[in-house]
Design a protein around this nucleic acid. Structure first.
Length: 646
RNA sequence: GCCGUUGUAGCUCAGUGGUAGAGCACUUCCUUGGUAAGGAAGAGGUCACGAGUUCAACUCUCGUCAACGGCUCCA
């Protein structure tokens, strides 16, 4: 007998060689039906794997992320099997599960697969599922593995096997398909009830652009059709919230081929919205002792040689521009920090000047590969809500914490309820990627970890994700439909002050080197507005929205009254307009709803006589009649309360 | 940058080797209306751009640019 410890701490005795399936069955039949795999001593295994010694066992179902992973991983094999049957001779790369679903990278040789093939493949997959075939794990020797794929002629699998250690190689057989795989897998394809192939993409073999590009097929599967339908609905919802679509509809921004790819043009409504965001942040920063500065959009090449950016990114930047007479070279500013270092260096500094907090909505230009450009989230010209804090090492942690406070306040004000803070550290095995001394890196990394702990942040640590000059803390938010977006960043930097020779005179009358914090709570205005659009679906908070209310006169007879209302409201800073078209009220309401205007003020005979407006709220029905003043006050209070700091 | 797909009116999209169509939006007229589309008429396009094939190209071929889905990258 062996002792099996379950997650709730209970210990049960079973015969040696018991399987997770049997354990589940001993608890309940329902559980047994739903078990997909098991976690045995922190290792996921098949639910059919015999357990030979005392162990901690967690049964994995669809409700566990690990259970989903196994489900999707097996689904990838299912898809491969179907594809192999339909397109004999194709070669397989890798087929892992991903956050939602899975993909398989496949070399289709001469065949040009398209999404028209999806239906066939889905049908074939369903057919295989219906045959209820088992998925069987088998250990093979390295030679056996090599022989199998040599015979099959799959050089990708052979390459994978080369890197594996003999004695640790497993194959999984399912129906006609055998795959090299670490596993674990479902013991049968039967639970895979709903299948959807999603998209095709090219993907380099082993992520190396010099190697062959395979065809990647993304797909997702579920144990219930209903869940697939829900997922497809979520995709639809995401499509509706696409900031590129909404940005166009609400006339916030546009792109022009003539202006150039990746160079967003802010239209009046978008520019006004962005300006409100900037003013909001400026106001917050003022209370935290920041000073605004303005720098030019270009900087001498030497500036970036000093900062180290030239050596690191010079080749991947827009080519320098040069003066016609002297041939002096300038780069379009790719970041603001070197300029800000020069602001620091513009006069001698005393410890009494520190911390010095320099802020700028600085527009920067970076060459992004053409295939990378994407709406407002990935562009070649964008404005950072940037600031650099120069401080002493004693001040570092407190300053860092204050920045965290600003970030969290912004998230709260803009209704991002969930966030994760990612601490990005240097990869200690790859030090040549970074500049600066070990000692400084150590200090910087410690400071970040300490501050994150101090503010009790929900953090994850990523090794090797640091900027080349220092570690950072990045904030990811979850939007209204659960998608994650990276926004603000805070970075500690010991290196730039050194490269720029920045100093201050301490209380000891000696020269010292300040430490720099780079930070951008929004990240960039472009990206932030994009995320805000996707988060709100274009229904911006009242204080931000381009148009807070629209007046809808019932007929032409009330246009004068409508103008009267407009004047009164405008005087009280309500952003309002009149729909004076000769359309019926129903039509005007429909259009205002589509434009996502928060309030519609319907005015006709009654309202004119009583000096009131009939208020309708976006997405709702009639919310009652108010006096003009009451409505103005209502808007003002609403705006104030959403910006209140508590 | 790479692979694949796409590019037709302001927007969403049909369409064909013989020089273009719908709906919405727009303009004008009729209608003066009470909480999600009243009616009619009109205007609007070098069919992304450049070459080539052809008697003839929006359509076929090649190139360029851009967008989209990914890959690689991201100070």
């Amino acid at each position: 007998m062996i002792n099996i410890t379950l997650p709730d701490g209970t210990i049960k005795q079973y015969n040696k060689g018991v399987t997770a399936n049997e354990i589940a069955l001993s608890i309940s039949e329902g559980l047994a039906r739903n078990v997909l795999a098991a976690m045995v001593n922190e290792q996921t295994v098949e639910s059919s794997r015999p357990i030979e010694t005392d162990a901690h066992v967690r049964l994995l179902t669809w409700n566990d992320p690990e259970g989903k992973n196994v489900f999707w991983h097996t689904s990838a094999h299912l898809m491969a099997e179907a594809i192999e049957q339909l397109y004999p001779g194709v070669k397989f790369g890798i087929g892992p599960c991903i956050e939602t679903g899975f993909y398989y990278d496949i070399d289709f040789l001469d065949y040009n697969i398209s999404s028209d093939d999806f239906k066939r493949i889905e049908d074939k997959m369903a057919e295989i599922v219906a045959s209820k075939q088992a998925v069987v794990r088998r250990e093979v020797s390295k030679q056996e593995a090599l022989d199998y794929f040599t015979k099959k002629g799959d050089e990708y699998k052979l390459e994978l096997i080369q890197d594996l250690e003999d004695g640790k190689i497993t194959f999984y057989d399912s129906g006609t398909f055998t795959d090299l795989c670490r596993g674990p897998h479902l013991t049968s394809m039967a639970p895979i009830k709903a299948i959807k192939l999603l998209s095709l993409a090219g993907a380099y073999w082993r992520g190396d652009e010099k190697r062959k590009q395979l065809t990647r097929i993304y797909a997702v599967t579920f144990p219930k059709k209903k869940e697939l339908d829900e997922y497809l609905l979520l995709l639809e919802e995401a499509k509706k919230r696409d900031h590129r679509k909404i940005g166009k509809e609400l006339e916030l921004f546009t792109f022009s081929q003539k202006v150039g790819a990746g160079l967003p043009i802010w239209l009046p409504k978008g520019a006004a919205l962005r300006e409100r965001l900037e003013n909001f942040l400026k106001k917050v920063q003022k209370t935290y002792g920041y000073q605004q500065v303005i720098c030019p959009h270009i900087g001498n090449v030497d500036l970036y040689k000093t900062s180290g950016h030239y050596q690191k990114y010079g080749q991947d930047s827009f080519r320098p521009i040069s003066t016609p007479q002297e041939g002096e070279e300038f780069f379009l500013k790719p970041m603001n920090c070197p300029h800000h270092c020069e602001i620091y260096a513009s006069k001698p500094r005393s410890y009494k000047d520190l911390p010095l907090r320099i802020a700028e909505f600085g527009t920067v230009y970076r060459y992004e590969q053409s295939g990378e450009l994407h709406g407002l989230t990935r562009v070649r010209g964008f404005t950072q809500d940037d600031a650099h804090i120069f401080c002493t090492s004693e001040q570092l942690e407190e300053e860092f914490c204050k920045v965290i406070d600003i970030v969290l306040y912004i998230f709260k004000t803009l209704d991002f309820k969930e966030y994760i803070a990612q601490v990005s550290l240097r990869d200690p095995n790859n030090k040549e990627k970074y500049i600066g001394t070990d000692e400084n890196w150590q200090k910087a990394e410690n400071a970040i970890m300490k501050a994150a702990k101090e503010r009790n942040l929900n953090t994850v640590v990523e090794i090797g994700e640091a900027a080349f000059y220092g570690p950072k803390l990045d904030f990811m938010v979850k939007d209204a439909i659960g998608r994650k977006w990276q926004l603000g960043t805070i970075q500690v930097d010991y290196n730039l002050p050194e490269r720029f020779g920045l100093e201050y005179i301490g209380s000891d009358n000696e020269k010292h080197r300040p430490i720099m914090i780079h930070r951008a709570p929004f990240g960039s205005m472009e990206r932030f507005v994009a995320v805000l659009i996707e988060h709100t679906g274009g229904n911006f908070p009242l204080w931000l929205t381009p148009e807070q209310a629209v007046i809808l006169p019932i007929s032409e007879k009330y246009h004068d009254y409508a103008k009267y209302v407009e004047t009164l409201l405008s005087e009280k800073d309500v952003r309002v307009s009149i729909d004076e078209r000769g359309e019926k009220t129903g039509k005007k309401i429909r259009d205002a709803e589509m434009r996502k205007v928060p309030y519609m003020l319907i005015v006709g005979e009654k309202e004119q006589n009583d000096k009131t407006v009939s208020v309708r709220q976006h997405g709702q029905i009639d919310v009652g009649v108010m006096s003009i003043d009451d409505f103005a006050n209502f808007i003002a209070e609403h705006v104030q309360s959403s910006l209140k700091k508590d």
